[in-house]
Structures are given as C-alpha cells and as structure tokens.
Simulated assay, not measured.
Amino acid sequence: MKELLAVLKDCGYDAHFVENKEEALSLSKTFIKEGMSVGLGGSTTVDEIGLLDFLVKKDDITLFNQYQKGITMDENIHRRRAGILTDIYVTGTNALTRDGKLVNADGSGNRVAALIFGPKKVLVVIGINKIVDNVEDGFKRLMEVSAIKNIDRMNSKAIEMGKAPRHNLDNIANKFTYIKADEKDRIVLIIVNEELGY
C-alpha cells in the first residue's frame, strides 16, 4: 500500500489509506466545510461508510442530492447538473489502477464529467476490492462486476416502485472514462482496507 500511495501522490492525487469504514467517514468529514456546495455521484461505497447520511443531515452546506425521494425528474437533472459545479463532489469509482488511473462507466455521465472537470475538489472513497493492475483490468471489472451489480440494484428498486426491470447494461454503462489526476490535489482519494461498493 505504501508503494501505491507513493505512485498516487506522484500522479497528483491527495491520496490517503485508512483501515475501516469508520476511519474513512471521519477523514471524509474533514473535507466538508461549512458553507460549501456539495455534489454527489452514484456510489454505494459513499453510502456504506455513512457519508451520504452525514451529508444529508448536515445543514450548513448546500447539497445537490439527486437521490432525494419525491423530487421530479426535472429537479433530479437540475441537481445533477448543479452538482458538477460545486466546491466538492463526493463519489466512488469502479476501479483504481496501480499506476494511478480511475476507471469508470456511467449512464448519464455526471459522475465521470465531475471527475474530469468542474468541481473545485473531488472526494473519491475506494474499497480495496476496486484496486486493479491496469486499465484493461479496470474495464473488465466494471463490465463484469460493477455494471452487473448496479443493474441488479436498480432493478430491485424499480420492482419495489412497481416499474419494469431493465435488462440492458447500456442503461448504466454507456459513457466510459479512465483519467489520471491533472491539477495537483484536486482529486482526493481515500482508500479503505475493506471491500466496499460494487
């Protein structure tokens, strides 16, 4: 892990390693300051460490939460767009390569857009299960693991809401990226020594 962190820092990331979800949440909170605007990318990992709940309850920030129940699709889209022009964007990743590339696929593209450009800072929480050797392994992981689990998760929610399930991975994996940090320390990586997310 020391070697990986050194590579990530050389690439321009503000990279950290923590042992568990509790430490990940504690460290994540230090990046969320009073008065900030905060965007969200779809992330089971962010939810699993308790960060999503923390953000929703924090009343001294402006959170663009497209996952809030009861909002219209127009409001959902507005919040996704606003979220990529925030002080900090909070998300996970599909894969992280050992040479410092974040590999992702999105349906609408707001998360991958935010990683590339827009928010002043991006906070990415990463379980150790997301670490892969190279970009090819990253894309293999996102299509064979992440996308499959995400479509299952979306279908479970759709069925709960009385909607028809989706069977096409293109719904959630039609915009692909791999990126490396450009502006020094703009992208904060918190790697957690636990398996988290998809």
Rank of each mutant, 00 (worst) to 15 (best):
K184P: 04
R153Q: 03
K9Q: 15
S37P: 07
I77T: 13
G100I: 07
E183Y: 06
S26F: 06
G35E: 15
G92L: 01
L40G: 09
E194Y: 13
A173V: 03
T30D: 05
G100Q: 08
F64T: 12
N20P: 09
R141Q: 06
I32P: 09
S26Y: 02
Y178C: 15
K130I: 07
Y178E: 11
E144C: 03
I187K: 10
V38H: 08
D59Y: 08
K57G: 00
I128N: 15
G92H: 01
I190C: 01
N168H: 11
D87P: 15
H16D: 04
I61H: 13
D59Q: 14
T72D: 10
M73W: 13
A113M: 12
N134Q: 09
R166V: 04
I32H: 05
P119H: 09
E48M: 08
V7G: 03
V90Y: 13
D106R: 10
I32G: 13
K9M: 05
F139G: 03
I61T: 10
G127A: 12
V188A: 14
T97G: 08
V38G: 07
D53Q: 11
L123N: 14
I88P: 07
T86N: 14
A82E: 15
G70W: 01
R153V: 01
A82P: 02
K58W: 09
P119S: 13
N94A: 11
A15W: 14
I126W: 05
L123P: 10
E22M: 09
K9V: 06
N20Q: 06
V188W: 02
F117W: 11
N155F: 06
G138Q: 07
G162T: 02
T93E: 07
K149P: 00
S28I: 03
I77H: 13
D47H: 09
A158T: 03
I191H: 00
L5F: 10
K149Y: 00
E48T: 03
I179Q: 11
T177P: 01
L115H: 12
S43W: 12
N110I: 09
I77V: 10
E194H: 06
I151M: 13
T86S: 14
M1C: 04
L115A: 08
L169N: 06
M143F: 11
M161F: 15
K58R: 15
L40V: 12
R141F: 04
D182N: 12
L189T: 00
S26D: 11
A114T: 14
F54V: 00
T44E: 14
K57A: 00
L85V: 05
R166I: 10
M154E: 10
G50C: 03
V125H: 00
K120H: 09
G138I: 06
N193V: 02
T44N: 14
F139T: 02
A147D: 03
F139C: 09
A113E: 05
V46L: 01
G92M: 00
N155C: 12
G50L: 00
M36T: 02
L55V: 03
R111V: 07
M36Y: 13
Q66E: 05
E34H: 07
G42P: 03
V145P: 01
A113S: 15
S108V: 11
A158M: 08
V192K: 00
T30E: 14
M161I: 02
S28V: 08
G107P: 12
G50W: 01
D74C: 07
V125C: 06
M161E: 12
P119E: 08
A164I: 06
L102D: 04
D74P: 05
